[in-house]
């Protein structure tokens, strides 16, 4: 885990860091951060609890405990990563441990949108490329991820990444931090609520 925590801010264009490989399909958010750690009113203390039960189980051999992975920031995963509970505590715990980008075969939907909302770009690649990167990561692999080009570059190789164009645009422009963008349309929002049949037709809704 890195020392001081700095939350992502503004435009995100390049992410440089060491890769950490975590093998397995359908890794759910209960595993990323078990429910007992959700008893909190801030996210501040979540970093050290990431994968707590899996790590205890592996007694120091979990990727998040291996010395080689210390200070890693690019997580390499397999398919359907982050399935299950919508808890944003999961990507928040990864972020606070030091993860700044994730590359995987596929992501669960709510986890993906939570990552966008807190400034962690998620990229997808085919299974074979992921397996290649996971093997290389175990020996030490440093990537320069260029979000605009959707490319991950290392000293001796480079990989094409996939990212939804709307997500890519949001990271490049800083609009991933969505609140202010949404509030720019406040006039349209106020118009919209007046048009909705269920708002017009229900005096009892607020009872």
């Amino acid at each position: 885990m890195t020392g001081d925590f700095f939350a992502p801010q503004g435009k995100i264009k390049i992410i440089k860091g060491r890769c950490i490989s975590l093998i397995g399909d359908d890794i759910d958010t209960d595993r990323i951060i078990p429910a007992r750690f959700l008893k909190c009113v801030t996210f501040d203390s979540l970093g050290s609890a990431v994968f707590e039960d899996d790590r205890k189980d592996l007694k120091g051999k979990h990727p998040f405990d291996l010395r080689i992975n210390k200070n890693s920031s690019i997580l390499i995963v397999n398919s359907n990563f982050g399935c299950g509970s919508s808890r944003e505590h999961a990507p928040q715990a990864l972020l606070r441990w030091g993860i700044r980008a994730i590359i995987g075969e596929s992501f669960a939907e709510i986890f993906y949108s939570n990552c966008v909302a807190i400034g962690i770009p998620c990229f997808t690649m085919d299974k074979i490329s992921i397996n290649t990167i996971q093997e290389k990561s175990e020996k030490g692999l440093i990537f320069d991820i260029d979000i605009s080009e959707a490319e991950a570059r290392a000293t001796d190789c480079k990989f094409k990444l996939e990212i939804k164009s709307s997500s890519r645009n949001m990271f490049l422009s800083g609009e991933w931090d969505a609140t202010s963008t949404l509030l720019q349309n406040i006039g349209l929002i106020e118009e919209k609520i007046k048009q909705l049949p269920y708002v017009k037709l229900n005096d009892d809704f607020s009872k």
Binding site: S86, P91, Q92, S113, I118, M170, T179, I186
Partner: peptide, 17 residues
């Protein structure tokens, strides 16, 4: 379902991206 940052956005704007 949504995450906490999106809860913030709905509270602030009643909308989501």
């Amino acid at each position: 379902g949504i995450g906490t940052s999106q809860v913030r956005d709905v509270l602030a704007s009643q909308t989501l991206a």
